[in-house]
Design a protein around this nucleic acid. Structure first.
Lengths: 180, 180
DNA sequence: GTCCATGCAAATGCTTTGCACGTAT
DNA sequence: ATACGTGCAAAGCATTTGCATGGAC
C-alpha cells in the first residue's frame, strides 16, 4: 500500500503557455492580455482556488479582469486540460491547474477547510475494478475524504467536529441495527 | 475483494416516521401535514432525486407543498440523518434517504446520467487508511466513479463519451511525459 | 478589416429568506 | 394561546449571457 503526498513542483515553467497558445491557435481563438494574465496568475501557485479567489489574486496583482472573462477563461482552460474543477459540496467550485500533475484525490478538513492531496495506486485500481465488475466503463473518478487534519485535531473546532461525528456514527449504527 | 450491489430494500417501513417524530418532538418542532407528506413521498421509493424531482413527485401525488417548505424539510431530514445529499458536480444536489442503508459509493453514467450504487469494504478501509497515514482523522468520504454504464456502452452517446475520454487520456499522458 | 474578446449589467437557476397568515400542541 | 410552519414573492449567490465597444490577427 503506497501513498504519495505529491509536492506541487512545477517542473517546466512555461510549458503550459505553449499548450494554451497551441490550443487557441488551433481553434482560431485569440491570445489576449486577459488570458495571458489569468494563465500566469493561475500557474504562479499550485493551490486549490475558487473563481473568487482567482479574482482577488488578480486584483492584488494589479490586474483588471472582469468576472465574465475570468469564468470564460476557466472554461477554456478546463477544455484544454490545463485545469480541473472539483466539487467539494460547498457553495463554489474549486479549481486547480493540472498540467504535469497526475490524478490525485483530496482530503478536506472540516475544521479549517484546508485541502490536502494524496494518491494511492491501490485506490485507483480498486475503483476501476469495482466499476468494471459492474459492467461500467470507468472514465474518471473522484474521491474526497472529509475529516480533521493533524493541525486542527487538538483545536476547539476540530474537537467539536470529531465529537459531532462520533455521535452521528453511534445513532446511525443504532438505526442499521434496528433495520437488520 | 468484494463488491456488493445493495438492493434498495426498505425492511421496516414506518421506522423512519418514528425517528422523524422523535426528532421533532425533542426540539419542539411540529409534525405537520406537509412534513408527513414529504417524508412519505421520499420513503415511498429509494432513488436519487433532486429537490425538483421531489417537487414533481409531490404534485403528481396530488400534494401541494411549496418549494420553500420542501427545502426547509430537506434540511431537517438531513439533520436527523434520514437523508444524505450528494454533489455529483451537476447543477443541483441529489438526495437519497439513508435510514438503514449503509454508506455506499456511486457510479454516474456520463451518457444517461443514471446512478448506480456500489460498496467495497476494501475501498472503505483504504480510504480511512490513507487519511490516517497522513495524520488526518477521517469522518466520512465520498467516492464517485464517472463512466459509461453497460446499457449505454453500445449507444451513440456512450461511444461518443468513451471516444472523447480516450483522446483526453492520450493527451494528458503526453503532458506528463513532457514534464518528467 | 474581420472576428473574436471584453466589460458591463441583466439574466439564470438553485436555494434561502422575510413576512403575514395559518395551525399543531 | 403560543410558538412554530406555511406559501408567496423577493432576495441571494455563483455562474452565464446579450450587447455594444475594443483589440488581436
Amino acid at each position: 500500500m503506497s501513498f504519495n503526498y505529491e509536492k506541487n513542483v512545477h517542473t517546466e515553467p512555461g510549458a503550459e503557455v505553449a499548450i494554451f497558445e497551441a490550443y487557441l491557435r488551433e481553434r482560431g481563438l485569440k491570445l489576449t492580455q486577459a488570458r495571458r494574465d489569468l494563465l500566469n496568475v493561475i500557474f504562479s501557485d499550485h493551490g486549490h482556488f475558487t473563481a473568487d479567489d482567482l479574482y482577488d489574486r488578480c486584483r492584488r496583482a494589479g490586474l483588471r479582469v472582469s468576472k465574465a472573462t475570468l469564468y470564460r477563461t476557466l472554461i477554456i482552460l478546463i477544455d484544454c486540460k490545463l485545469l480541473v474543477d472539483h466539487d467539494f459540496g460547498q457553495d463554489a467550485k474549486y479549481f486547480e491547474h493540472c498540467y504535469g500533475h497526475r490524478h490525485h484525490d483530496h482530503m478536506v478538513c472540516l475544521a479549517c477547510r484546508g485541502i490536502t492531496e494524496f494518491r494511492s495506486e491501490e485506490l485507483e485500481r480498486l475503483q476501476d475494478h469495482a466499476a468494471i465488475e459492474l459492467g461500467f466503463a470507468p472514465v474518471r473518478h473522484s474521491t474526497t475524504v472529509f475529516g480533521v487534519c493533524a493541525g486542527c485535531a487538538s483545536g476547539e473546532r476540530g474537537r467539536q467536529v470529531l465529537e459531532e461525528a462520533r455521535r452521528a456514527v453511534a445513532s446511525s449504527e443504532a438505526a442499521v441495527e434496528n433495520q437488520a
